[in-house]
Amino acid sequence: MSARANILRSSAAHAILIAYTILALYPVFLIVINSMKSRRAIFNDPLALPTRQSFDLVGFQTVLEQGNFLLYFQNSLIVTVASLFFALLFGAMAAFALAEYRFRGNLLMGLYLALGIMIPIRLGTVAILEMMVAANLVNTHWALILVYTANGLPLAVFILSEFMRQVSDDLKNAARIDGLSEYRIFFTIALPLVRPALATVAVFTMIPIWNDLWFPLILAPGESTKTLTLGSQIFLGQYVTNWNAVLAALTLAIFPVVVLYLIFSRQLIRGITRGAVK
């Protein structure tokens, strides 16, 4: 192949990728720049960057005054962190048991726990709501935490048991000879060694929990337990004619997720890449 054809091909590749990157990012960019403009500028020249004349933060003011966003943010944080903690801890424990010990029903147990990867938990909503009502957990953080923990477990067990199998047997047997209990072996040897896998599972589990609308809407729609996703959905519905406020609320909702993503994107991409290779 001639060098000229090579250059042609690589510039065609870049052209396609740049075009698609613009398609992926421009809508988001448009919302962010317009959130910082006055109402008149939003409508007169939506594609322009905010200038000194058109710069206006009135939308953010409305959002911060009218919405309970700090509370919603806190709720989302509590629910996400707690669900992640339990899903990872319980998932890692079960994965360790499945990978480490031979016992009757091991394979069956693994299959049973993996069922939930394919069958969405949403289909059980009717009975889940009945159960939460009976247990008096509606409009509490616990309702959401329990549901998300259960939902996160199958994938956590599935991925982590794969990694638990790779933890060196010599290391564990040396610890056993030193008289460490099985629990100590799990917490002090196995768990620290699968930390990269834990981080991957955490990122995978975190995004759907943070973004979920269905369960907050059904199990915890009360003002004190609204998550950020549900809160912004309701706020956007109420302020639908106040463009400044809507654009500002969207920008505020986009910001934390994108920042978190940029911090963890290498972890996430490495996780997907490794998971698929397997």
Partner: peptide
């Protein structure tokens, strides 16, 4: 090890 995951 199995109980918490299994129960939830």
């Amino acid at each position: 090890f199995l109980a918490p995951a299994l129960i939830v």
